[in-house]
Simulated scan of single mutants.
Amino acid sequence: MNSHDLNKFAMGILIAMLGLIGFNLIAEEIFHQDPLTANAYPIDTSAVASATVATAAVEEGPSIAELMQTADAEKGAGVFRKCAACHTTENGGANKIGPNLWNVVGNDVGSNSSFGYSDAVLAVEGGWTYELLNRYLTKPKDAIPGNKMVFAGLKKGSDRANVIMYLRSFSDAPIELPTVAAVEEAVEEAVEAAAPEAM
């Protein structure tokens, strides 16, 4: 193949490429569509949002308020044996690896002045509510990241509720049990907050 043939071959490739580019430009002009600024058919997603919240509630199981209605302190004493190596419960009892738990339910987090809490626990504001105790006993490392407790947690909700009921008994004035109605109201508010405004 001589140089003349090579030039013809290169020219053919160049023309083909220019033709392809031109075809794409023409097709873009013919079939071009501006993006929609809004859905042509508005979709109400409030039912989906409500269903998602409801599904999450079912997956998580009964709330701690519901579990506390049937909790048993005596059964909690049995479950607490797992905790007794590190905690005492009597009024004025000594700290062990963990703090004494007298009057812990409802009391401020990290309030035992004779125990050296981690910075993570000391940074928590508020008290040991039923909800916080439930989360903490489920998985301490997730409930208060950075705390020193090495206990893995209690998987069964009934075990957690029973232990909390047992700990609640160690107080001169135990706090009131949570009401299911208040929890249901909070869930309804969460569903309403998750649902987008009607279009």
Rank of each mutant, 00 (worst) to 15 (best):
A182C: 03
E188W: 13
G157L: 00
V163C: 04
V187A: 09
V180C: 07
D142I: 01
G146H: 06
K155P: 09
A143P: 14
A195P: 09
Y166P: 08
E184Y: 10
V163L: 02
G146E: 09
M165T: 13
R160N: 04
V183L: 11
K141S: 13
T179Q: 13
G157E: 06
K148A: 14
L154D: 12
S158K: 11
T138L: 15
K148S: 15
K156V: 05
A152F: 01
T138G: 15
E189P: 02
K141T: 13
A182L: 06
A186S: 14
A193V: 02
E189N: 08
E176I: 02
A143T: 00
D159N: 09
A186M: 13
F170M: 07
D172R: 09
E189H: 15
V150E: 12
V191A: 05
A195I: 10
V150T: 01
F151T: 06
S158H: 05
D142V: 05
G153Q: 01
A194L: 13
V163I: 10
T179S: 14
N147E: 03
R168L: 12
T179V: 04
A161N: 15
P145M: 00
R168K: 09
V183W: 10
S169E: 15
G146W: 09
R160M: 00
A181Y: 07
T138Q: 14
E184M: 08
A186Y: 04
R160L: 08
Y166T: 04
R168S: 07
I164N: 05
E192I: 03
K155V: 09
A181F: 03
N147I: 01
A190R: 13
A181W: 09
R168C: 07
E189D: 02
A143L: 05
I175P: 04
D142A: 13
S158Q: 10
A143G: 07
A173T: 08
F151L: 07
G157H: 02
L177G: 12
D142E: 12
A173W: 00
I175Y: 13
I175W: 01
I164R: 08
D159E: 08
R168I: 03
V150M: 04
M149K: 09
M165N: 08
Y166H: 13
L154R: 01
A194E: 15
A161V: 05
A143I: 11
E188L: 03
R160W: 05
A195S: 15
E188G: 09
D172K: 05
E188P: 12
S158N: 07
S171R: 03
M165Y: 14
A194N: 10
A186I: 06
I175C: 06
F170L: 04
S158G: 11
A190P: 05
A182V: 02
S171T: 03
K141R: 06
L167M: 00
A182Q: 01
I144A: 08
L167S: 11
V191K: 15
R168M: 11
E176S: 14
R160C: 00
V163P: 05
A152M: 04
A182S: 07
G146K: 09
V187P: 11
V187S: 15
A152V: 11
E189Q: 11
P140N: 01
E192K: 04
K141N: 08
I164H: 00
Y166E: 11
G153L: 02
K139C: 12
Y166N: 04
S158E: 14
L167P: 12
K141H: 11
A190C: 06
P140L: 02
V150P: 14
K148H: 10
N162H: 03
M165I: 03
A152C: 07
T179F: 04
G146N: 00
